[in-house]
Design a protein around this nucleic acid. Structure first.
Length: 865
RNA sequence: GAGGAAGUGGCGAAAUCGGCAGACGCAUCGGACUUAAAAUCCGAAGCCUUCGGGCGUGGGGGUUCGAGUCCCCCCUUCCUCACCA
């Protein structure tokens, strides 16, 4: 037994012990030893994509936070489910394979091994018996099985949609791989091109996805982002006849049916199907050129999208149904312009330039008629002032709805349209159906067969999984078809039900698929007859606390909610929503350094002297800035290095001590020694460094129990405050304040050490244990405490030690602090006033006290003239 | 352009209700110990000051006996989404 603090020795030792005793193993209903009366708590991290570069300290932030919560919940007696796994399908592994020839299976296995090693180094309390890998056939078998449920409900369909095509890479790219019209990798130009794709009908759940978000305990900012993304808007669909085209009409969506009388032109999206039919010969050349240009240009140079509206007249006129055909106002020109999106509403609008900014700008540019149909309320500028008015007002120049306020005018306009069969009320959503297929290799194959008779059927559940065929060339074909299409022996098969010849679907699912239900698989990860058992789901669902970055605010969380609702409808799960409480950890940023010309200098070449920074070579002064961690800046910090140097406990403490879990904050390795010092001070409080006893005698079993008085009472109060602060810090996960409380206690205890009792020592260790588990386990064992501290009970402050008998009473004169006086905690107002008055006598001399404010137990304020 | 989050010492930050602004750390400075250094321990420290005090939570107004905290306007930074009719 040595008395030096040696984290490199004690940490692996306790990790091995926890593993051998399976202390983080969560029991399911039916498992031996399962206690149905015990409360359950499910803490989930957003599981990582195991990239080749490994974890950095930013990823670890949330994992340390949830680990501390899990450990505390266990100590509070909960059956805690805290699992971890790998979101292992995805494009980087495949891209890497194309470049290096290394199979995605091999790199994925390597990467997950590395991630797991890193997580274990940190001492995280995952139940590794539940580890899952979305790219493992044992897992994706059930992803396919769940897809079949969507397919049989008609929620998956195949259609031709415009997708990103990159000519340079000869491949289809996912939306998330295209940034400002260029490929994320290589920065090549991309264009939209129609291709047959699988879609999921998420829009049919739009209303429920919107409504149910009110009931969950999520950050309001995320709720707002989801609501905005779903983007419900209510309005009307209106049909316009086209002059000279009896067979075609033009339907538009508007949220302002009351402004129909002010519609002076129409605009179609350039891709709108009517464009070809209605364009007149004179305009054809101009229109075709515009359509072609907008296929690339509109998305390509968005950076210098100078917001100048462009468009071309088709030569065609529509008839505004608000007016009689003979009325000159009825005939309105039809234009095309790229400010109208094909995918939203009907891909066509009626333009009301008097009351819509975009239409107003367009009308000005092309000199089109602007007519006022909504009079602004008094005090607002309108067309009379040369400005467009988009707010609510009173209908004017609008025939049957004249004089109505906007709200009523909308309703009346819809009635009017319905009665004439010109339109109807309609609600639209920004949310689009979900493009669910990728022409890629490293994903779940669709469990679908295209039969000789032209129908498409699901592979029967009992034939799953449809395994990815072995391949070693993953390059997409030049026509955009998937790599799987090049494996004829895999593609060509027979439908096991009808015996017909069949072709397998050669698309794979997107990276999101595996993460759409993984929290359910964690509940029952080894089930071979179902994705998860009903009993397990009834017991564990929903997730009590889900922690991850705000970057997944929309996509993952919306997709996951969608699948969960489909499962709910299918009777597979018993809750409407998957994640009861969501918490977003902040981003860990890092410092970077700039020279006078704002050029970034790699961190390795920066030298610090006090609070100044200079370039180590040139001695040029540098400015410190805060940025993302990036390889190119050389400021990525990885946990392995930190742990090797300081130990896991110090690393964990620093991660939390930086600030509230929710805040973004810069990593500063220079600050870590503060946490290291704290850990060492804790050690020395318990262990005499020069001695050879495992623990100071006062903390050993059978030590004399001091009376709680004098210094021991002072420490008891200090400990109570620390325990209270620690407990409170879990409310908002500002665990930094808990650590500050522990530090304060150790600062108090150090000079009063002889008065500290064994009981105080062990309670302190129990509170610190979730934060610094190895250290506490070691000291706990040296104290001769029974069992493991990870299984001990969470200590709670005794309320009466939180109350001080004597307080420092601040005394203010005119709101300014002039003195502090000692006062008894329970002194009444008159006593307090008297004490206060004598404390600030000199400030009151010769002044008239006009008012005295006494806040019992808080302060006294004299208002004087 | 829209939405969100946030601005407090040299730095990270703290401050249930409106009630002593800057706890706890880092860096800094001083002292002890040491042949010396490291480590450790003790102490100082928001800024200005004529040593009475004054000024201080991005800026400007307001409410209040009292505002980091509540209300209005403005500025800056970061994140997300881009013309959604």
């Amino acid at each position: 037994m040595t008395n030096a603090y040696e984290p490199q020795k004690i940490e692996p030792r306790w990790q091995a012990r926890w593993q051998s005793e399976a202390v983080y193993r969560a029991l399911n209903p039916g498992d031996p030893g399962f206690d149905p009366k015990q409360k359950k708590y499910y803490v989930l991290d957003m599981f990582p994509y195991p990239s080749g570069s490994g974890l950095h300290v930013g990823h670890a932030l949330g994992y340390v936070g949830t680990d501390i919560v899990s450990r505390k919940k266990r100590m509070e007696g909960c059956n805690v489910l805290h699992p971890m796994g790998w979101d292992a399908f995805g494009l980087p592994a495949e891209q890497y394979a194309i470049q290096t020839g290394k199979h995605p299976r091999a790199t994925t296995n390597e990467n997950t091994r590395n991630f797991k090693r890193q997580l274990e180094l940190i001492g995280l309390s995952y139940d590794w018996s539940r580890e899952i890998d979305t790219s493992d056939p044992k897992y994706y078998r059930w992803t396919q099985w769940l897809f079949n449920r969507l397919f049989e409900k008609g929620l998956a369909y195949r259609t031709s949609v415009p997708v990103w095509w990159c000519e340079e890479l000869k491949t289809v790219l996912a939306n998330e791989e295209v940034i400002n019209g260029r490929s994320e990798r290589g920065n090549h130009p991309c264009v939209r091109r129609p291709l047959e794709q699988w879609m999921l009908r998420i829009t049919s759940y739009a209303e429920r996805l919107l409504a149910d978000i009110d009931a969950v305990d999520w950050p309001e900012s995320i709720k707002i982002q989801q609501r905005e993304w779903i983007g419900k808007s209510e309005g009307a669909e209106i049909r316009f006849a086209l002059d000279g085209h009896d067979t075609h009409s033009l339907t538009v969506f508007t949220t302002r049916p009351d402004t129909l009388w002010g519609a002076t032109f129409m605009v179609l999206a350039p891709e709108h199907e009517l464009v070809q039919r209605i364009t007149t010969p004179q305009q054809r050349a101009a229109v075709e050129q515009y359509v072609k240009a907008s296929a690339t240009k509109s998305e390509l140079d968005r950076t210098d999208a100078s917001k100048v509206k462009t468009g071309v007249f088709t030569g065609c006129f529509a008839l505004n149904p608000a007016f009689d055909v003979a009325d000159p106002r009825a005939k309105v020109p039809v234009w095309i312009a790229d400010y109208v999106m094909l995918g939203y509403g009907t891909g066509a609008i009626m333009s009301v330039p008097g009351h819509d900014e975009r239409d107003f700008e367009f009308a000005r540019k092309f000199d089109l008629e602007v007519r006022e149909v909504v009079a602004p309320p008094k005090g607002h500028k309108g067309l009379a002032d040369g400005e467009c008015f988009t707010g609510e007002g009173t209908a004017v120049n609008s025939g049957p709805i004249d004089g109505l306020a906007t709200k009523a005018a909308k309703a009346r306009a819809i009635e009017w349209l319905v009665s004439r069969k010109l339109g109807s009320a309609r609600t639209t959503y920004k949310l689009r159906d979900w493009l669910f297929s990728r022409q890629r290799y490293w994903g779940e194959p669709f469990p679908l067969l295209h039969l000789a008779d032209g129908t498409t059927v699901a592979v029967p559940d009992d034939e799953l999984p449809v395994l990815l065929p072995p391949m070693d060339d993953f390059k997409p074909a030049s026509d955009g078809s998937a790599p799987l299409a090049r494996v004829p022996e895999w593609v060509n098969t027979v439908d096991p039900r009808s015996g017909q010849k069949a072709r397998r679907d050669t698309d794979t699912m997107p990276g999101w698929a595996g993460s759409c239900w993984y929290w359910l698989r964690f509940m029952d990860p080894h089930n071979q007859t179902a994705p998860f058992s009903k009993e397990a789901e009834r017991y564990w669902g929903p997730v009590d606390l889900y922690v991850g970055g705000a970057g997944h605010a929309v996509m993952h969380l919306l997709y996951a909610r969608f699948w969960h609702k489909v499962f709910f409808d299918a009777g597979l799960v018993h809750t409407n929503e998957p994640f009861q409480r969501l918490f977003n950890q902040g981003m860990v940023t890092a410092y970077a350094y700039q020279d006078a010309g704002s050029r970034l200098v790699p961190s390795a070449a920066v030298e610090a002297s006090g609070d100044k920074y200079v370039n180590a070579e040139t001695r040029e002064p540098l400015t410190q800035i805060v940025t993302k961690m990036a390889k190119s800046l050389g400021n990525v910090v990885n946990p392995d290095d930190m742990i090797a140097e300081y130990g896991a406990d110090t690393f964990r403490l620093y991660e939390m001590f930086m600030g509230p879990l929710a805040d973004s904050k810069p990593w500063n390795t220079r600050d870590i020694p503060g946490c290291k010092r704290f850990v060492e001070r804790v050690w020395r409080v318990f262990v005499e460094p020069e001695g050879d006893a495992p623990i100071r005698a006062q903390f050993a079993a059978g030590a004399q129990v001091p009376a709680i008085q004098g210094d021991t009472l002072t420490l008891e109060r200090s400990l109570a405050r620390a325990l209270k602060r620690a407990d409170d810090s879990f409310q908002n996960l500002n665990l930094n304040t808990a650590i500050a409380g522990f530090m304060t206690f150790i600062n108090d205890a150090t000079p009063l050490l002889p008065a500290m009792s064994r009981s105080q020592g062990e309670r302190f260790l129990r509170a610190l244990a979730p934060f610094a588990p190895h250290l506490c386990e070691e000291l706990w064992s040296r104290m001769g405490m029974p069992g493991l501290i990870v299984q001990a009970q969470w200590p709670v402050a005794e309320a009466h030690y939180l109350i001080e008998d004597e307080i420092d009473l601040p005394v203010q004169v005119n709101g300014k602090l002039r003195a502090t006086a000692k006062a008894q905690k329970d002194a009444d107002n008159a006593q307090l006033e008297a004490i206060a008055r004598s404390a600030v006598e000199n400030h009151l001399a010769g002044k008239e006290v006009v008012k005295t404010v006494v806040v019992p137990g808080r302060l006294v304020n004299f208002v004087v003239k």
